[in-house]
Simulated scan of single mutants.
Amino acid sequence: MKSIQFLLLAAVLIISVFMSCAKGNEKIQAGALHSSDLDFFNSNTNQPVKMKLWYLAGEQQCGSTICLSQSQNKRKVALISHGAFGSPVEMNWLGYALASQGWLVVGVAHYGESWVYGKETIDPSVLTRFWQRPAEVSFALEQLTNEGLFNLDINTNNVLMLGHSAGGFTALALAGAKLEAGKSEHYCALASAKNDKSCGYNAKRNTPLSDEQIVKISKQQVTMYDPRIKAIISLDPALGHAVNESSLEEVKVPTLVVGSVENDFLPFKQHAQYYAEHIKNAELVGIKQGAGHFIYINQCEHNFKAQGVLLCKDRDGVDRKALQQQVLGHVFSFINRRGLNQL
């Protein structure tokens, strides 16, 4: 109960801080980088789905909801999944950078976690329903072909998927990664896991999962895979300690895993390195220089903590902006080497 109360308080604090930072739409100039927010409704889940788009803007009067520049590459589509209790707003640094290179970038706000839906929607138990995140991404991807949304016909069959933390797992789940029942609980009970902050999010169960529940979850995990995802960039991904090794061996798409080596939240070896070691031909980049888990979100000034770790304040001497530029160098190098600019 205390862990649930903590998560609720954390979520409320995030809401109060980031809502004050949200900016209204500015006048759009043709050819300029722009960001827009869109609202959809998923009738299958009876839930709203909010999306943030980063793109090169076209003429304002184009007869569509979003006016893309005529120079927009209609095949370069990238999606971003945020970390637990975050939002696409915190990924502005990444969204704008990709958009500047011709990508149509879509950030998905995960319902029940993200503050953008309002504090009354925050539900910490959503973290245990991990299969919902990939489903929300797939739904968002489907909406990009809605008639009247864009002035150009967007191809969504060759998508670059990115994510941070829980979003890093979400990206990998869309390519086939699956959790293994009981693995997280076993790992978090070990003395060696005491510094793994992700164990603090484990749902406390009075009884273990029944065989029937395990079978049901296994079937739900199969639906997480989306064949439209053709490449993955996972930034300091979470849940490495809970993911089934054999499922990672089945991941076939080009994959880049970036992780903080001197991690203050997710031990590098058990998360980022674990993923890369078991995905065939995956590329692993370890960010040093004191980088922590939250250097992958926007620079910020509030004092909110997650599991005792400050989101905005890095270790002494750490330059978050410089580290993000370093990460972008690896991101674009991966994109070029894998031929993703030729989509």
Rank of each mutant, 00 (worst) to 15 (best):
F6H: 10
L8K: 15
A10T: 09
L13K: 14
C21M: 11
A22T: 05
G24N: 09
G24V: 06
E26L: 10
N42W: 11
K50Y: 10
M51R: 05
Y55N: 05
L56C: 10
Q61K: 15
G63Y: 13
S69G: 06
N73V: 00
K76R: 14
L79A: 07
L79H: 01
L79K: 00
S81K: 01
G83N: 12
M91C: 10
M91E: 15
N92S: 15
N92D: 15
W93R: 11
W93S: 07
L94K: 13
G95Y: 01
L98G: 02
G107L: 10
Y111K: 08
G112F: 08
S114N: 04
Y117G: 01
E120R: 13
F130H: 10
Q132C: 02
R133Q: 08
V137W: 07
S138Q: 15
E142Q: 14
Q143I: 07
T145W: 09
N151W: 10
M161W: 00
G163Y: 01
G167M: 11
G168D: 08
A171V: 00
A173C: 04
A173W: 01
L174R: 02
G176C: 12
A177P: 06
A177N: 06
L179C: 04
E180H: 04
A181V: 14
K183A: 10
E185W: 02
H186D: 08
C188Q: 08
A189P: 00
L190V: 02
A191F: 08
D196H: 11
G200R: 05
N202G: 13
N202P: 00
R205C: 02
R205T: 09
P208T: 05
L209Q: 12
K216Y: 04
I217T: 04
Q220E: 15
Q221P: 03
V222W: 08
T223M: 14
T223V: 12
M224G: 04
D226A: 06
P227I: 05
L235Q: 14
D236E: 15
P237V: 13
P237I: 09
A238S: 15
L239S: 09
N244W: 01
E245P: 03
S246G: 04
L248W: 11
P254T: 09
P254N: 11
P254F: 07
G259A: 05
S260Q: 08
F265W: 13
K269F: 10
Q270F: 12
Q273Y: 07
Q273L: 10
Y274D: 04
E277Q: 15
I279N: 03
N281F: 06
G286R: 05
G286M: 07
G290E: 05
I295L: 06
Y296E: 11
Q299Y: 03
H302M: 00
Q307H: 04
V309S: 09
D316F: 04
V318A: 06
V318H: 03
R320A: 08
L323E: 09
Q325Y: 02
L328P: 14
G329V: 05
F334T: 03
N336H: 14
R337I: 00
R338F: 02
L340V: 01
L340N: 02
N341M: 01
Q342I: 00
Q342P: 00
L343E: 13
